[in-house]
């Protein structure tokens, strides 16, 4: 099959502290490529690999994009395809998206996650270390639990375990930020809060965690949730917006109980 690609090319990294959009996007622009040897069985990233081989043969700079496991579990890949993070298939990462999801002759726009907190490193690769800094501020349990316990020594009701697990499936790809009309990270941070607050081990530090995670999120320059739920629609792990309500509730609780 044939496709026409419009891909964001940017050779200089975005300046995180840029005041204007022009400084942020640097030399970035959309570039058009025609590709006529695409198999419908290729994954989206394999299609980009084919494009890159053509570019290398022509002596041009290949398109830089992030990827690692290509099994949909690592969270490294991710581009915005025709305006939708990870493309048209629901609950799918970019690497697990296949070209059969597009019609022959399709025009495909490929762009990086667009957010001030995710500056472009090159082409389609963005710097997601903002997520790491948020996680470092409390998305863990720091209480000492001693030697490994027997399994099931701490009983957790099934319903709570399910809620925690729904949130824990987050792979930190950043699609929620990319899809949000406000570039908000509240689905990601909500998942971290919700992941721990439904478990007895996580409840010990719940207030500190909610406060610290939200403070860290705000410092990174993400936007604010306006309950439009575009994040939930594109999340490859289909994390529900319930986790955002969990975070809101936890943050309020922590602030009210603040001494």
């Amino acid at each position: 099959m044939k496709v026409t690609l419009h891909i964001w090319r940017q050779s200089q990294p975005s300046d995180r502290h840029a005041q204007s959009a022009r400084d942020f996007q640097r030399d970035g622009r959309m570039v058009r490529y025609e590709l006529d040897d695409v198999s419908p069985d290729m994954s989206f990233l394999e299609m980009l690999d084919v494009l890159n081989e053509h570019l290398i043969k022509k002596g041009e700079e290949p398109v830089a994009f992030d990827h690692d496991c290509r099994e949909g579990i690592c969270g490294a890949c991710g581009v915005v395809i025709n305006g939708v993070a990870h493309g048209p298939e629901k609950g799918t990462t970019t690497c697990q998206l296949h070209m059969r999801s597009f019609r022959d002759g399709a025009e495909i726009y490929v762009e990086p996650w667009r957010a001030k907190a995710f500056p472009v490193v090159r082409d389609l690769i963005v710097d997601r270390s903002a997520f790491d800094r948020v996680v470092q501020n409390g998305a863990y349990v720091s209480v000492n639990t001693g030697a490994p316990q027997d399994a099931n020594a701490t009983p957790v009701p099934k319903a709570d375990a399910d809620k925690a697990f729904d949130a824990a499936t987050c792979i930190g790809c950043g699609a929620c930020v990319a899809a949000c009309k406000n570039a908000s990270a509240m689905l990601f941070v909500g998942a971290k809060v919700s992941h721990f607050v439904h478990l007895p081990q996580g409840r010990v530090e719940r207030e500190e965690r909610a406060r610290n995670l939200v403070t860290a999120m705000d410092e990174e320059g993400f936007g604010n949730c306006t309950n439009q739920y575009e994040c939930e629609a594109v999340c490859p792990k289909e994390i529900p917006v319930r986790v955002i309500a969990d975070m809101n509730r936890e943050f309020l609780r922590a602030k009210v109980r603040e001494e």
């Binding site: 419009h6 996007q25 959309m30 915005v80 762009e111 667009r114 406000n182 993400f222 939930e232």
Partner: peptide
């Protein structure tokens, strides 16, 4: 929070 807009905008469920 989003200095550069998407060239191709889409809305899934909002």
């Amino acid at each position: 929070a989003r200095p550069v807009p998407y060239a191709s905008e889409a809305t899934v469920q909002a």
